[in-house]
């Protein structure tokens, strides 16, 4: 009896609840780990950086700190879109760096159990395929979970730190 309780406790522990900040990009909903999100900003002027990598939109001044903003659409291989009133810059921390990612809009924070996360179809050959760490059904909607640490390669993270 005690053993079965222990098994149940371990299973419950393994099936931890995670929080995900969801955002929209090209009519799809993506989720990023809430622990990596520092804040969400309205779109502000982004100063371009000459010679920066193509996936860098530019830099912004965040309370005296310079933050590099990534063109998420470009990174995901999606067509570019105009900035509108719902466009947001999500400030995240990944690979010990603070960067901003430009998204179409930010939706909500959702709670997901680990068991609710499925593997993404593993047929990707492109580099952006590795960004996706899983998918989850939420009613009629599919939430695509992004691994922010893999948003850039080690070389790119290093390159970013030099900007």
């Amino acid at each position: 009896m005690t053993e079965s309780r222990n098994v149940a406790a371990v299973a419950a522990k393994d099936d931890a609840v995670l929080q995900w900040v969801t955002f929209r990009l090209d009519n799809e909903t993506y989720g990023i780990n809430v622990m990596q999100v520092q804040e969400v900003l309205r779109h502000t002027e982004i100063a371009p950086v000459p010679g920066a990598p193509h996936y860098v939109l530019g830099i912004i001044n965040l309370r005296g700190n310079v933050v590099t903003v990534i063109d998420t659409r470009s990174r995901f291989g999606l067509p570019s879109a105009d900035v509108d009133d719902s466009t947001r810059i999500v400030i995240i921390e990944a690979e010990k760096q603070v960067i901003g990612i430009l998204v179409d809009s930010v939706a909500e924070v959702v709670y997901l159990r680990r068991s609710e996360i499925d593997n993404a179809p593993n047929v990707g050959t492109e580099e952006s395929a590795k960004f996706i760490q899983g998918v989850s059904n939420r009613g009629e909607e599919l939430l695509i979970l992004v691994d922010l640490d893999k948003l850039l390669s080690d070389e790119e993270w290093a390159e970013l730190s030099q900007i």
Binding site: D26, N27, E28, F76, G77, L78, A120, P121, V123, G124, T125, E126, E127, S128, A129, K130, F131, I132, V135, N137, E140, L142, I144
Partner: peptide
């Protein structure tokens, strides 16, 4: 159909 990034051109996406 949900489009999943980084997949081949012939992979249209996933449908629940």
């Amino acid at each position: 159909i949900n489009h999943i990034i980084g997949r081949p051109k012939w992979f249209k996406g996933v449908q629940t």
